[in-house]
Design a protein around this nucleic acid. Structure first.
Length: 563
RNA sequence: UGGGGUGUAGCCAAGCGGUAAGGCAACGGACUCUGACUCCGUCAUGCGUAGGUUCGAAUCCUACCACCCCAGCCA
């Protein structure tokens, strides 16, 4: 295969869709071009599952030097709204894809769609049916029993034309008539049993066409024609549309002079420990089980963005997952791996003490202040440095001190030593407790000779993070965990809501952050050393008062060993 | 009991008649002023099951099994 057409970079293994397209290009199909489309219905917010589709559609086009259109599949005025088109556009842009000026709407094709319907009627391939919804269901038959022809099936072309025109003119109530394709009521494929092409929806205003129309085309009829009108070459969609393909092909075959794109189906994305259906996500929002569509625990792109996910990590994840036709459930660990992988490279380091424990270093004089310089990134010098004052009173994390340490504990213990990150080695001289025996503070000493140098004659294994007491800033930190404690909340016994992880959100107030963090801006990301990756919440932060969301924790082999 | 799909390790996934890629996870170890990162190593005599064809089968054939989707005037 030595054609001049660009092929996907070899770094990403080829998938079955790329193989089909490569074959098409070899056969000079579509004049060697590739045009795909991402076709969301503007009836809700995008989630990680849509991200896979976006990556496949835009990514496949990019891999073959083609283009991808954005098309809103807005044929059902009952559920759609402008609010959603704006949010969808924003999410796609955020993910890093650009449809340039190729923004289309199925509703822009309503006139042409209507004319094509006329063509089908004239060819005696469509008829106006008066069956009620209930009757239609009865006439349709079942999975194993064939359906029966509608009594209106042999209505004359003239009468069909007249009735369809009157449907459009608004003469009939919702549900009084439908326009149906005349195919085969005995087809083993339910979609081919004279599917509805148009329905009457007088009661709804369309978010773009207003009240111009009172009949609306159905998905099956609209999608293939929209693809054809845009000269789409490959119409990539999910598996559940597999048995709609014969209908997609039927419509285009019956129409004169329209191109015939190829529909190819792939498996949708499933991830464990979450739910992906719009119905359930909406329920979580409506029942206030989460704070909204952009709750950082939600698998929505708005939620993931607020959580601190990077667009690149989501794109890489989608690459990693691959494209196949087999239904699968991807381990959320893979998503987290992709996230950490990107964040490790791109996040400046900072120190923030989540559970402050006061430490007084007795051999540091009152008022003493020594400026420490720490790199913003251990491997990327271009990120620069930050300054932190070493003072007599500091805070360390409560979890970094144990009076009775478990075996292998290498943090601070009574009488033991530990390194303060980027600073001196300190030794715990005394543990001060209140009447109930709770640890109040630690009295320590420090070894002057250990700044940037190994201590003499002994080994100090542990390194812990810290902040100066006076100069640190108080911040709110929100610790997020998986929304569900069951890996398959959908398919488990009982209601999925019963598996909501009660610890999926823990709010910590009075955390002590190093002073450089005071100017952190919305959505800025950091690695809080030894804790995890955090980002500044864009909703609840105020100037000089950042609120941090835990994006994902650092891998923690110690915690894992502890059980 | 109809039709359309899919079965390769705990998870995702290559493989396209020539003797099971890669990633995630896990487990060892090295390194380390983050128990992080990085780096090394281990991890399918086995490809849903049973037969068959072949010198040779995850790949071809036959039968069976399991799971997913379809009976909206939703997309």
């Amino acid at each position: 295969m030595n054609d001049s057409t660009s092929t996907p970079e070899s770094s990403t293994p080829s998938n079955f869709i790329q193989q089909i397209i490569r074959e098409d290009l070899k056969n000079q199909k579509n004049e060697g071009g590739v045009l795909t489309r991402f076709p969301p219905e503007p009836n809700g917010y995008l989630h990680i599952g849509h991200a896979k589709s976006i990556c496949i559609n835009f990514g496949t086009a990019r891999d073959f030097s083609g283009l991808c259109n954005l098309r809103f599949d807005d044929t059902n005025p009952e559920k759609e709204d402008m609010e959603y088109v704006d949010s969808i556009k924003e999410s796609i842009r955020w993910l890093g894809f650009d449809w340039e000026d190729r923004e289309y709407y199925a509703s822009n094709y309503f006139d042409q769609l209507f004319d094509f319907a006329l063509e089908l009627i004239k060819k005696n391939k469509a008829y106006v049916c008066s069956l009620s919804q209930e009757q239609a269901r009865e006439y349709r038959g079942t999975l194993t029993a064939p359906g029966r022809n509608s009594p209106d099936r042999n209505r004359s072309v003239e009468e069909n034309l007249d009735l369809f025109a009157r449907m459009k003119a608004g003469e009939f109530d919702d549900g009084a008539y439908t326009l149906r394709a005349k195919i085969d009521m005995a087809s083993p494929n339910m979609n081919m049993r004279d599917p509805v092409l148009y329905r009457i929806r007088r009661l709804h205003h369309h978010h773009r066409t207003g009240d111009k129309w009172c009949i609306y085309p159905m998905y099956d009829y609209t999608h293939c024609i929209s693809d054809a009108l845009e000269n789409i070459t490959h119409s990539l969609c999910t598996l559940e549309f597999e048995d709609h393909r014969p209908l997609y092909d039927w419509v285009l075959d019956e129409l004169d002079g329209v191109p015939h794109p190829q529909q190819i189906e792939f498996a949708r994305l499933n991830i464990n420990y979450t739910v992906m259906s719009k119905r359930k996500l909406k329920q979580l929002v409506d029942e206030k089980l989460v704070t909204g569509w952009d709750d950082p625990r939600m698998p929505t792109l708005d939620g993931m963005r607020r959580r601190g996910y990077t667009p690149a990590s989501i794109r890489n994840f989608c690459e990693m997952v691959g494209v196949t036709k087999s239904n699968s459930v991807v381990d959320v660990g893979m998503l987290e791996h992709s996230l950490r992988d990107d964040l490790d490279k791109s996040s400046p380091r900072a120190m923030c003490v989540l559970h402050p424990l006061k430490v007084v270093i007795e051999n540091v004089p009152e008022g003493h202040k020594e400026e420490m310089t720490l790199p913003r990134h251990p491997k990327d010098e271009s990120m620069g440095e930050r300054k932190i004052s070493f003072t007599r009173t500091i805070y360390i994390d409560h979890n970094d001190f144990e009076e009775v340490p478990p075996p292998g504990f290498k943090r601070l213990i009574a009488g033991g030593e530990v390194r303060l990150r980027g600073c001196y080695v300190i030794k715990c001289e005394e543990v001060i407790k209140d009447a109930e025996g709770n640890i109040q503070e630690l009295r320590c000493s420090y070894d002057v000779a250990t700044l940037g140098a190994k201590p003499e004659g002994r080994k100090v294994k542990g390194v812990i993070h810290w902040v100066p007491a006076d100069e640190s800033i108080d911040v709110e930190v929100r610790l997020y965990d998986r929304l569900f404690s069951h890996e398959a909340p959908d398919s488990a016994e009982g209601d999925y809501r019963d598996f909501i992880n009660p610890e999926s959100l823990m709010v910590l107030r009075g955390c002590k952050a190093e002073p450089s963090l005071v100017n952190a801006v919305a959505e800025e990301r950091f690695q809080f050393e030894r804790e995890g990756y955090f980002c500044v919440d864009k909703i609840d932060s105020a100037p000089q008062q950042p609120v941090f969301n835990l994006t994902v924790g650092l891998r923690d082999t110690w915690a894992r060993k502890q059980g």
